[in-house]
Computed example of a mutant assay.
Amino acid sequence: MKKVGLYFGTFNPIHIGHLVIANHMVEFSELDEVWFVITPQSPFKVKQSLLKDNHRYQMVSEAVKDYTKLKPSKIEFGLPQPNYTVHTLAHLTEKYGNSYEFCLIMGEDNLKGLHKWKNYEVILENHKLFVYPRISEGKIEHRFKGHPKINKVNAPIMEISSTFIRKNHKAGNNIRPLLPEAVWEYLDEMNFYRS
């Protein structure tokens, strides 16, 4: 059974930091594949800076096309909103449970807030977590330290953010080295984040 790491995010846009982490997870942990689960735009929170779902899916597809172990996923596009991770995991397990074991990839900053997640106990009972380091405030709850389902992966610390990319692209600064080439070309051609 294939072990799939689910890497959730808006990927607005996907950048080399995301790729470095996903590739590190698939090459240096027990994961066989990483799926980029693109979070849909919430109908309840319309953000001007968030590109339409299909454009973000297209950029993720472009970014991973040369990486056989990395895949784009639009599984959340068809789920009721607002959606919770626990629901996505249940949906995927129901749909693919015989072929894949689903695990969750998250930054250390998210682990610090895991106790506030909807049904986090259910997630931990049924899924492994693969955690990559992040520079962030706060402490990891005692109950998560040394937990048998939580695996810390010594991935590189990536301090690149999509917010930084959008802001500086709009300001006219060259952010091209921070994006996979195909993503840069798509973003530039579509004139995203400029106006």
Rank of each mutant, 00 (worst) to 15 (best):
G17I: 07
Q58T: 12
F102L: 03
I75M: 09
E181T: 04
I105M: 13
L70W: 12
H87W: 12
T85F: 12
D188C: 06
D109M: 09
E189A: 12
F192Q: 04
P72R: 04
L79H: 04
L51R: 08
M25S: 01
H87P: 00
W184C: 03
L104M: 14
S161H: 04
C103S: 07
I135V: 15
M25F: 03
S49K: 15
F36S: 02
H169Q: 08
W117V: 02
N154I: 11
A90R: 11
E30D: 15
E62D: 13
F192C: 01
A155G: 00
Q58N: 13
R194M: 01
G138M: 04
I140Y: 09
G9Q: 01
F8H: 08
V64E: 02
E27F: 10
T68E: 15
E101Y: 13
G138W: 14
H115T: 08
I16T: 11
A90L: 12
V20D: 10
F102M: 06
S161K: 14
H142F: 15
E33P: 06
F102V: 03
L111C: 03
R194N: 07
E159P: 06
T88M: 05
N98T: 12
L179P: 01
K71C: 07
D188F: 09
I157R: 10
I157D: 06
Y57D: 08
L50Q: 09
Y84D: 05
H91K: 03
L89R: 05
I175R: 04
W184A: 03
I14R: 03
H115L: 11
I38E: 00
Q58C: 11
K45N: 11
F8A: 01
H87L: 06
F130N: 02
K152S: 08
F102C: 04
Y132D: 00
S42K: 15
P43L: 07
Q41W: 13
L187F: 11
Q81D: 07
S195M: 12
H87V: 05
A155M: 02
T39S: 15
L104T: 08
E185K: 09
Y67R: 12
L51Q: 07
A171D: 06
R194Q: 13
S49W: 14
I16P: 07
P40D: 07
I135K: 15
